[in-house]
Write a protein that binds this DNA or RNA. Structure first.
Length: 278
DNA sequence: GTGCCTGTTACCTC
DNA sequence: AGAGGTAACAGGCA
């Protein structure tokens, strides 16, 4: 569910809600695995009484910089956060709550329970193993070309791998590859400089458009993405190939097909995205 | 009901 | 290094 644009939208709303500067008075954990590998006792004891200094996004993580620790939240497939002004009964799928000094409660809801709230160590943690931020100044087309040159693998799993470029998921990878006219099973090392330059631009374009539209909310039920305020994003109306199998390619009218690449559902225009024969 | 699908990632073996 | 399988879960859908 939440990829970079969705997490960015949530982080911006957390800031707008003035969570920076708020003090966490108490923490409730209803599903212990959400704070794995910490014990509930350790997690609650560590997080309680700390002030949230700042909130930032790194890749698909929400990062709470606390007084003494860094708290990272990964929403995985179905994680959501939302604020309520006062205490409310715990609904199904709510697995954790932060109580703030001003009385507000930050809820964590996650139908599939894949998400994680983790206390990161500044020196050795997941964040330091992440690849480059695709919207940062460090992400340039020569850097992308070098990365592609140094690996021999299919483009789709390359772009999904957070160790190389951090923040892309299934939706935005399909969109970026379609926009760059690259077949998801093309091999990284065979991508030309020109293609890499175009892909660099399309990656940024699809992510920036996703953020501008406040994220992608697929389907029409509650298990889909919603931001902090519960609003659905609007980017699903701007997708060109993702979940559009059977519909015409917006560029050439060829019927979009769905294939399987590296075990992931993958959407392509068979005319625009040709796989080069060896 | 059955079986397959899903926006993520970790971990395992080959 | 990289591919492939499985698992963590719950629900939607045909």
């Amino acid at each position: 569910m939440p990829e970079l644009p969705e997490v960015e939208t949530i982080v911006r709303e957390l800031r707008e809600a003035h969570l920076e500067g708020a003090t966490i008075t108490n923490v409730e954990v209803f599903w212990p695995r959400i704070v794995s590998p910490h014990t509930v006792e350790e997690f609650v004891r560590t997080v309680s009484k700390q002030k949230i200094r700042s909130i930032v996004r790194r890749a698909k993580y929400i990062v709470f910089n606390l007084d003494k620790n860094i708290l990272t939240v990964h929403l995985r497939m179905t994680g959501k956060v939302f604020l309520t002004p006062k205490i409310e009964p715990v609904r199904k799928h709510i697995h954790l709550r932060l109580h703030l000094a001003d009385g507000r409660i930050l809820h964590y809801e996650d139908q599939r329970k894949f998400g994680r709230w983790t206390l990161a160590d500044i020196s050795s943690d997941k964040l330091s193993e992440l690849g480059i931020e695709p919207l940062s100044d460090e992400f340039t087309s020569p850097i992308l070309y070098d990365l592609l040159q140094s690996h021999m693998m299919q483009m789709k799993p390359f772009l999904l791998n957070q160790k190389f470029i951090a923040g892309l998921g299934n939706i935005y990878v399909d969109e970026a590859l379609w926009a760059a006219k690259i077949h998801p099973q093309s091999i990284t090392k065979t991508i030309s400089k020109q293609q890499a330059t175009l892909l660099h631009k399309t990656i940024r374009d699809v992510l920036e458009r996703g953020i501008a539209n406040a994220g992608t909310s697929l389907g029409n039920n509650k298990s889909n993405y919603a931001s902090l305020s519960g609003k659905r994003g609007g980017n699903q109306y701007r997708l060109n190939v993702f979940r559009r199998e059977g519909l015409p390619c917006p560029r050439c009218n060829t019927t979009i097909v769905k294939i399987k690449v590296a075990q992931r559902g993958t959407h392509i225009c068979p005319h625009c995205q040709k796989l080069k024969k060896k």
